[in-house]
Computed example of a mutant assay.
Amino acid sequence: MGAGDPQDLVVKIRRSVLDGHFAAGQRLVEAELCDLYQVSRSTVRQALRELVADGLVEVQRNKGARVRVISTAEAVEITEVRMVLEGLLAAKAAERVTPEQAGRLLKIKEAMRERVAAHDPLAYSELNAALHGLVQEIAGQVTARTILVRLQGQLVRHQFRLSLQPGRSAVSLGQHERIVDAVVARDPAGAEAAMREHLRDVITQITRISQATTPSVEVAAPAGSGASRRDGLATR
């Protein structure tokens, strides 16, 4: 077993949270992480310290590390920050988009339409993530994109709950179509407004769902369960 690179391990654990392999509230046992990623315990400890600083992991007294459970209030705050950052990135993408990149955006938009028509929310969600990622790539703002990656992992549970709402994919599709159309038209103000409108609606829906269900505690799905894996495929 090699020592391993702590930064590489941070990326891998963060990806496991986004993909739903590690559920909200799940314990992260050092020995198990060493075996899973074939790295030393010191590498695991360094990676967990960084993930704690990012807000993705928390350390509980006498219980060790676990994936942090995000409250509805925190989810709203994080999405408000995303609204500013992703609005900026959408505007920058509209300024910088090339014809080739515009074609890629339009292909994703068309594929999203097809998945909504086929009632396939998981495939739609993957395209959703690809679309946001492409907009960020086109924008070329490394700092904003790095911050967004850190924020995204904290919202997995709330996004999953939102994805289960009847008709959500169709509503989300219309919002994403407006984002794509504005970027392709090289309309920075329109792209930023469309992105902000989309994320403002996400905030509204997260709040509505919370008020309707009023859970006292969010229960994490068991490691490796179907629900856990689907968390990483949330429709925004």
Score class of each variant (00 low, 15 high):
residue 64 G to W: 01
residue 103 G to N: 02
residue 114 E to R: 15
residue 54 D to H: 07
residue 16 S to F: 02
residue 194 A to H: 06
residue 180 V to W: 11
residue 213 T to F: 01
residue 195 M to E: 13
residue 198 H to Q: 08
residue 75 A to I: 00
residue 183 V to E: 08
residue 190 G to R: 13
residue 106 L to I: 00
residue 120 D to Y: 05
residue 126 E to L: 05
residue 12 K to P: 07
residue 157 R to P: 02
residue 47 A to R: 09
residue 15 R to K: 15
residue 195 M to I: 04
residue 210 S to A: 11
residue 126 E to F: 00
residue 60 Q to K: 06
residue 85 L to I: 15
residue 88 L to K: 00
residue 21 H to Q: 08
residue 65 A to Y: 12
residue 160 F to H: 07
residue 120 D to Q: 04
residue 229 R to F: 13
residue 186 R to T: 10
residue 76 V to L: 13
residue 79 T to L: 01
residue 174 G to T: 10
residue 1 M to F: 14
residue 105 L to S: 08
residue 207 T to S: 15
residue 22 F to Q: 00
residue 196 R to G: 05
residue 210 S to K: 15
residue 218 E to L: 04
residue 182 A to T: 11
residue 195 M to L: 11
residue 162 L to M: 11
residue 215 P to T: 15
residue 205 Q to P: 02
residue 140 G to P: 15
residue 117 A to M: 13
residue 185 A to W: 12
residue 83 M to C: 05
residue 143 T to A: 12
residue 229 R to V: 09
residue 199 L to H: 07
residue 205 Q to W: 03
residue 22 F to A: 01
residue 116 V to D: 04
residue 44 V to G: 07
residue 219 V to D: 09
residue 234 A to R: 01
residue 42 S to V: 05
residue 192 E to S: 09
residue 102 A to Y: 00
residue 37 Y to W: 11
residue 62 N to G: 09
residue 229 R to C: 11
residue 208 R to M: 04
residue 71 S to G: 08
residue 38 Q to W: 10
residue 34 C to G: 11
residue 203 I to T: 08
residue 223 A to C: 08
residue 23 A to E: 05
residue 22 F to L: 03
residue 122 L to K: 00
residue 147 I to M: 15
residue 143 T to G: 10
residue 177 E to S: 14
residue 37 Y to E: 11
residue 150 R to M: 15
residue 130 A to F: 09
residue 215 P to I: 13
residue 134 L to F: 12
residue 124 Y to S: 04
residue 82 R to L: 05
residue 72 T to E: 12
residue 215 P to S: 14
residue 33 L to D: 06
residue 22 F to T: 00
residue 99 P to I: 01
residue 11 V to T: 07
residue 159 Q to E: 12
residue 139 A to I: 02
residue 35 D to G: 10
residue 222 P to K: 04
residue 233 L to N: 03
residue 180 V to N: 14
residue 15 R to H: 10
residue 208 R to F: 04
residue 75 A to N: 01
residue 203 I to W: 13
residue 102 A to H: 01
residue 71 S to R: 03
residue 229 R to I: 09
residue 55 G to F: 08
residue 27 R to W: 06
residue 56 L to W: 03
residue 184 V to T: 06
residue 221 A to H: 10
residue 210 S to V: 14
residue 71 S to Y: 03
residue 46 Q to L: 15
residue 144 A to Y: 11
residue 105 L to A: 03
